[in-house]
Design a protein around this nucleic acid. Structure first.
Length: 916
RNA sequence: GGGCGCGUAGCUCAGCGGUAGAGCACUGCCUUGACAUGGCAGGAGUCACUGGUUCGAUCCCAGUCGUGCCCACCA
């Protein structure tokens, strides 16, 4: 074996071999266990969030696969309507063409071409991560099967009255020229103005002042509203006002929506361009005047002077014109929420159009109940509150998009505008009773991407056909996802699953945190703080990293700052840490419900852990390879101890995996393997291997191998590659059956061996006492020491005898002896193990004063503890009220501290006498 | 305006009713036949603040401050 672990050499090899062997396909036998991969966008690159999430899912899948379950991790990709269309349009733009130049069919063809040539990036990256997904059943939301599912759902919901077409205000993206759902609109605080405008009274008796943040919409005003409780305007209601710049006049109405205390208390009402005004307009039967085109320029409903102007240019012009007409009372700075499209970044307009909607209330009700009655459990639990909040206020879902890439809406119109819905035109005709003579036109729109994603848990398994896979794996076990798509995806899957499968899509939803950079910032291309998981695996030099981060920026002027920050944060680029170190780091950071600051220190430490594992294996193999190993049950205290610890660790890790506490599992594994197996057991095995009897040697060799092999299996879900590589090397010495660690059984926990645990705990205390003396008194670590024991119990004498050889080796002891209780110990340095004195001969080694100082420090600590224990026990309320076990424990502590205090004190007195 | 988090060692984070933990960083010693990506031994925290409940609070409750996120129609 190499002297240090070289991940690059083995990772790709093992992944290929697993995939070729078909190990990722679920086993025929066993309890079904299924996780749905949240399908990444086909345009996407694997980012840290994916890598984190994939690691969690892979750990769970491998863990259950090793328990003999029929484990399916369903993979696939999402066609991501808007995102994908934008990518391809941008490419066309490079050649100076628009999609309209190509026409719909040719454009869709171009998207498919693009998908086939460059849509597989994420799948390749997932392989680098070791993701054990079932590639044989890879799915894409635009596949024929899945499209059939989409059509069926649409048609059925339509004929049930749960999908309808309606004209109302939607969120309109004037750059992409499509409607968006509420969720795709991001509102953020931005700086703006509040303009106070005078609307003159038609009767010539002065004017009313209205305050607005959007003066350009006044062109579509059809009323001014005041609060009915507002005494200032009570007698104005019903009056007509002159709408400036338009020549129209509009009424004053009263509506309790108006806030008396905001602005002037008068609101201009523009039903066509504001959601609230639209509602108000309905209440008062106001006229709805749309003054915008679909690209947000002013249309011909407005005065000619403004027609064709962009809305923001029109705003400037209108403000100027009002000012010129002395109708602008004042302009104030004002913070307001600006809605923007999550893809285009364009300011969204409320816009009156015909769109398709899902009537959501009937679907939401059972979906709420499923969480209420525990059929679905959120982990951590508090997310169900977020879920309920949203589900209780949910509005009908706008599902039509004015795009070309996506599932085209299966609706046809005749010349009168009647609607016919069916799987295809023939079906639609049949259902509507229309013959060939009447010509029909299919709806031009496609469905929201999330419409097909909502069906993912059953469409990927074969629905609407009753396939064995669907039968076996639905409902799935757990959904692993980020909180950011609880509304977009999780809630909608629950609704659709209950509606069409009559059962929940998953029993648990594990919500993980967001991966941030080491400063707590969200990772994003424009911030230039993105880490590529593949770079963490393979490593990257500084210059290519800088180039990667600064090229292709939307705002190129940010490049210098990004370059500077990158050079500061990663002066040497990134080292190659390997996949297992990355995965282990993700697991260790996967704490419940908390965002994650990704810190290079952590992954470096875990890379070292891989190396530790590698070298421990190297040692074990070097110590065993030339021998025929006979399996034996452990007999020595050390052998029994490490097995007892292994059992404990295995049980703990199982529990942590089952509770989605990958962080605790990783921590526990690290602690066991490094601190118990390597630091203690390996060291304890060395003297046995060197000079034990042949039976003892065999037992030690077997235990070394056996515990290593079991640990590898417990580690495998988190670190698949290194565990497989080492496990393969253990097959021969342990005569293991099976081809791969992937398919081995996950170890079972077993009973603790309390006697062995007590024995080794004693030995550790003695050794640590000696080491402390050595270090504190500056005795060379390699210098053999003469040791004496004094006082203590019979059990101390027994143990000292049984472990003499181990003590000599691990404690670097040259000789040991027992002293009478009254023997002179002034020439010694002392460590206490309960009432046993471990004495190190000071002769010529140290200064008495140093020893006094050392003992003084220890004494001080014991005295403080003694005082605390005594104080507690003196408190009668404590003794009376605390549980007996706690009081008992306090008594034991007090006794121990007393013994130690006495021990240190007497030794110090002797030394002080010596000094005089 | 509502809701959800978070504030524990220099840093990143566990713990969440019985004497404060890990990794990294730091200090000292050590190239010991697995590993210097290492070993051994250390130093380091009034667990944000103020009250309350309790025999006992980092942990439970209330409030304050700081900080992050989500939702929401105040023109």
């Amino acid at each position: 074996m190499e002297k240090s672990y070289q991940p690059a050499a083995i990772e790709g090899r093992w992944y290929r071999s697993w995939e070729e062997a078909g190990y990722f396909s679920p086993a025929e036998q066993g309890q079904p266990y299924c996780i749905m991969l949240p399908p990444p966008n086909v345009t996407g690159n694997l980012h840290m969030g994916h890598a984190f999430q994939d690691t969690i899912m892979d750990v769970l899948t491998r863990f259950h696969r090793m328990q003999g379950n029929s484990a399916l991790w369903q993979t696939g990709m999402d066609h991501a309507g808007i995102a994908t269309q934008m990518v391809v349009e941008r490419q066309l733009a490079d050649d100076g063409i628009t999609r309209h130049d190509l026409g719909r069919d040719k454009f869709v063809e171009a998207v498919w071409d693009w998908k086939h040539s460059s849509g597989g990036m994420i799948a390749r990256q997932m392989r680098r991560l070791g993701a054990s997904v079932d590639w044989d059943h890879d799915r894409f939301t635009m596949d024929e099967d899945l499209s059939r599912a989409v059509m069926k759902v649409f048609v059925e919901l339509f004929h049930e009255g749960l999908i309808y077409r309606g004209k109302r205000l939607v969120n309109w993206d004037p750059v992409l020229h499509t409607a968006l759902s509420d969720l795709e609109v991001i509102s953020e605080d931005e700086n703006g103005y509040l303009w106070h405008i005078r609307y003159p009274r038609v009767d010539g008796k002065g004017y009313i002042v209205v305050a607005t943040t959007r003066p350009e919409t006044m062109l579509g005003d059809t009323a001014v509203a005041v609060n009915p409780q507002d005494p200032r305007y009570a007698d104005l209601v019903g009056l007509e006002l002159e709408l400036p710049l338009t020549g129209r006049s509009i009424p004053v109405i009263s509506d309790s929506y108006v806030d008396i205390n905001f602005g002037s208390g008068c609101v201009k009402v523009t039903p066509a361009h504001d959601f609230n005004d639209y509602e108000m307009g309905k209440r008062h039967q106001l006229q709805v005047i749309n003054v915008l085109n679909d690209d947000a320029t002013i249309n011909n409903q407005a005065p000619e002077a403004y027609q064709g102007l962009d809305r923001f240019d029109a705003r400037k012009q209108i403000v100027a014109d009002l000012e010129a007409a002395c109708l602008l009372e004042k302009t104030e700075n004002h913070r307001l929420m600006i809605p923007r499209g999550d893809r285009s970044g364009a300011v969204i307009e409320p816009y009156l159009t015909d769109q398709w909607y899902v009537k959501i209330a009937p679907l939401a009700k059972p979906a709420i109940e499923a969480v209420e009655n525990g059929k679905i459990r959120f982990i951590p639990e508090n997310w169900n509150k977020t879920y309920f909040d949203w589900m209780h206020r949910i509005e009908d879902w706008c599902i039509s998009r004015q795009l070309w890439w996506g599932h085209r809406i299966p609706a046809w119109y005749d010349a009168e505008g009647n609607i016919y819905v069916g799987y295809d035109e023939t079906d639609a005709r049949k259902r509507g009773g229309i013959d060939e003579a009447i010509s029909l036109q299919q709806d031009e729109d496609v469905l929201d991407t999330w419409f097909s994603s909502a069906l993912w848990p059953f469409s990927t398994l074969g629905w609407p056909d009753k396939t064995p896979r669907l039968e076996k794996y639905y409902p799935t076990n757990v959904l692993v996802t980020g909180f950011d798509i609880i509304f977009f995806w999780v809630a909608r899957m629950i609704m659709m699953g209950l509606k069409f499968m009559d059962d929940v899509p998953f029993r648990e939803v594990y919500i993980h945190g967001l991966i941030r950079d080491s400063h707590g910032q969200k990772m994003s291309k424009s911030k230039g703080n993105v880490l590529d998981p593949i770079d963490l695996i393979d490593g990257i030099e500084l210059e290519p990293l800088v180039k990667k981060r600064t090229s292709g920026l939307m705002q190129p002027h940010l490049a210098p700052a990004i370059e500077k920050a990158t050079r500061k944060d990663f002066p040497d680029g990134l080292q190659a840490f390997g996949c297992d170190a990355l995965r282990f780091t993700f697991a260790a950071l996967a704490t419940n419900g908390r965002d994650i600051r990704f810190d290079l220190g952590r992954i470096e430490g875990n890379r070292n852990f891989c190396n530790k594992l590698w070298n421990a294996a190297r040692f074990v193999l070097m110590s065993t390879s030339d021998y025929a190993i006979q399996p034996v049950s452990a007999s020595s205290a050390a052998d029994r101890w490490i097995i007892s610890r292994l059992y404990k660790m295995t049980g703990d890790v199982r529990g942590h995996f089952n509770e989605y506490r990958l962080d605790l599992a990783a921590r526990r594994l690290h602690q066991f393997f490094w601190n118990e197996y390597c630091d203690w057991y390996l060291e304890l095995s060395k003297p046995v291997l060197l000079c034990g009897s042949s039976d003892e040697k065999n037992a030690a060799r077997y235990t070394l191998l056996h515990v290593l092999e079991s640990s590898l299996r417990v580690l495998h879900p988190i670190m698949p590659f290194i565990t497989e590589e080492i496990w393969q090397r253990l097959r021969k010495p342990l005569a293991l059956k099976g081809e791969s660690i992937m398919l081995q059984a996950f170890p079972e926990a077993g009973d603790a061996d309390q006697q062995a645990e007590d024995d080794i705990a004693w030995l550790q205390q003695v050794v640590q006492g000696i080491r402390n003396i050595r270090a504190e008194l500056n005795v060379a670590p390699a210098k053999p020491l003469a040791i004496a024991f004094q006082s203590g119990q019979q059990s101390d004498r027994d143990r000292q005898q049984r472990f003499a050889a181990l003590l000599e080796s691990v404690g670097k002891i040259s000789s040991s002896q027992w002293l009478d209780d009254n023997a002179d110990t002034t020439g010694y340095s002392v460590a206490l193990v309960a009432d046993l004195k471990v004495l190190v001969s000071l002769q010529g080694l140290v200064d008495v004063e140093d020893e006094l100082a050392r003992l003084g420090k220890l004494l001080e600590r014991e005295l403080a503890d003694l005082k605390r224990s005594a104080g507690k026990l003196k408190n009668s309320r404590f003794v009376k009220n605390a549980p007996p076990a706690v009081v008992e424990q306090e008594h034991r502590r007090l006794a121990t501290h007393k013994t130690k205090v006495t021990g240190f004190k007497t030794q110090m007195e002797k030394l002080e006498k010596l000094q005089e």
